[in-house]
Amino acid sequence: MKHEALLEVRSLRKYFPARRGILSRARWVHAVDGASFIVEAGETFGLVGESGCGKTTILRLIMRLIEPTSGEAIFTGEDIFKMSRERLKWLRSQISMIFQDPHSSLDPRMTLADIIAEPLKMRGLRKAKQRMKRVQELLERVGLSKAYVNRYPHEFSGGQKQRIGIARALAVGPKLILADEPVSSLDLSIRGSILNLLRELQGELGLAYLYVSHDLSTVRHFCHRTMVMYLGKGVELGPTDDVYLEPLHPYTKVLMSAIPVPDPAAKVTRKSLKGEVPSSLNPPSGCYFHPRCPYAIPTCSEKEPDFVEVKQGRYVACHLVQ
């Protein structure tokens, strides 16, 4: 059964200029440094990594809120970065976004109706009555009463605000939703309901999610396939079960063993990691992970490993594995 590739990202790079004095050389922050992956229609694809790995920047690039330094992002056959303004308008009805902080992602001065109708307005739905009808439909779809249309965001809890954000993202009928840590700011006891909602919507509407998070436990259960990122590069990619239970890349192994286990009887053998994440201003030579890697060999400091398919559907960037 062949899955249709909805979004294909190829060797995406984004370097930001680092502000320095007028006299010193231009330096670049390697926010995204060669990431490649495919998101299939109807699947949930996870992007995980620690701070500075570039996962949030990738989302911004795909939405074309910023321009890439190089690379492509092909959405249903067209390169997003080559799209004209007209085409971009269409793109915005195909891809939408959910944000991390429910409290700042909704304009506090707008009613729910305004917030959810805004994308509809942008798409040219002129009749106010039609818009209101759609708004009410959406509210109910996400589990909120349609009587809430004229209320303001501050009257709702974090979980409810996140539902409002989801309703807004659904308004235009997208095929892909970019989710930036949607449940990280929510209490443990209500995360489940939001994740269940997202899953239901995926089943009903055939949505694909690109799910970015630093919370490995959630991604484990929510995403079909996952890519682990380090310092702007993808280091491992594969079906979530495989990546988590049988990690191939040394960084993935360390990452998995670093998570505290909520079981006091479990024996914890942790692979310790030396030092700190290096600065993306001056990444190490060869494989970016080599200075901290417990298995590094001389080649690792000289040559950058390619991100290749080592098994069916499994990609790794590591000399030792290849």
Partner: peptide, 26 residues
């Protein structure tokens, strides 16, 4: 810096619209 501004941008709103409709009222 608030994410509702980012949300508006992701909808494809122009800068002028964002300033007028979202930032100024606040």
């Amino acid at each position: 810096e608030q994410s509702f501004v980012e949300a508006a941008r992701s909808l494809g709103m122009s800068d002028l619209l964002i300033i007028a409709r979202h930032i100024l009222p606040n």
